[in-house]
Design a binder for these strands. Structure first.
Lengths: 189, 189
DNA sequence: CTCATAAAGCAAATATTTTGCGTTAGGTAA
DNA sequence: TTACCTAACGCAAAATATTTGCTTTATGAG
């Protein structure tokens, strides 16, 4: 029922987890979400269904687990020289990923998970990115909003629209959110 | 597979739908989400499981359907005399409902649904409320942000936090979002 | 090398979901 | 009213998926 982080890098657990994740990723490219099933994934991964049920609980949790892992940062967002541009560049890339069919599935799988903890990891992940971009700006001596203001002013509207009205999650709106968030930095909160 | 709106008020369909919804609501008060099952709901509602599967597709869609219906407005938000206060009053009530265990389940059920259309209805529902409060303010001659700005400035951070970090969805933050959104009205966008 | 244990396999028992087909309710038009 | 027509339901069998008890295996510790 609880999701285990890879306890030991090279152990059997880790191999099974990787095999199952891999099987999910491969099947996802070939089948729609509705067609995926635990027995099918188990077969492709070369494990027994009961292994998956014992470890992940059900299909939704497994898919969420895979999606969350996929979300993780390969590397640091590119430097552009200003906070506004850093935000815009990172954000456009993120919007691109998350408006795609694949991205929308990832978001959906994560939201479908009952594990509260998993969503909070998404939150902290985005927080980390905002903190990173902000830190750069501080180093350059730019006036910067707090991380919390970046979360509320940029991440929140972006995510809200990605979830509820994906067509309206556009680079143009992103610019606006960034501009407004940064401009409110210059005046009394 | 598709969700039907009550086709005819008094028909058999409508009776079945109401019986099933009612069964869900009653079972939800007694059992945790994990314990609910289609056969169980069907039995309580006095219908066959196949009826539910044919009409709603699966448990997730049924629960989402029930939750969405519950979300709907009994009546217009209270008048307080200013847009800021209208927003604060409505928002606090909304936060109250949605941070409760029941509310969190409702949100979760809706997000777990694969029906994109359903989420868009949530979006439009909130839009309607914002448009209503804004309209009042316009009537009073107040300076008002656009509905879109209210969605991005108030609804988005509120919803984002309700979903990803419910502990941080507080009335204090709400005040801040409202103040910032309204203050940006007074200056060039 | 042996032991202890956590995780996996296996297979039987349950439970859920799908499906084909007969039945019924309720709407429409003669 | 009566005679259809059809969408939605009930029923029960079949197909799938999930759970569970017990056995086996891999791995880390002593």
């Amino acid at each position: 029922m609880a999701i285990k982080e890879a306890v030991r890098p090279g152990g059997r657990s880790a191999r099974v987890q990787e095999a199952v994740h891999q099987a999910v990723r491969e099947l996802q490219t070939a089948k729609s979400r509705e067609e995926l099933s635990v027995p099918q994934i188990a077969h492709k991964a070369g494990v027994t269904p009961s292994t998956i049920y014992r470890r992940w609980g059900n299909l939704a949790e497994l898919l969420a687990d895979v999606s969350l892992e996929r979300l993780h940062p390969d590397d640091e967002p590119p430097h552009t020289g200003s906070l506004a541009n850093d935000l815009q560049a990172w954000g456009e890339h993120y919007l691109d990923e998350m408006t795609s069919p694949t991205g929308q599935c990832m978001l959906g799988d994560i939201m479908a998970s009952a594990e509260r903890e998993r969503r909070q990891r998404c939150y902290r992940y985005n927080e980390t990115i905002m903190a990173c971009l902000r830190e750069r700006a501080v180093m350059r001596g730019e006036a910067t909003p707090s991380v919390e203001d970046l979360m509320d002013g940029v991440i929140a509207p972006m995510t809200y629209r990605l979830l509820y009205a994906p067509d309206t999650a556009t680079p143009e709106r992103l610019s606006r959110w960034i501009a407004q968030t940064l401009s409110s930095t210059d005046m009394p909160g």
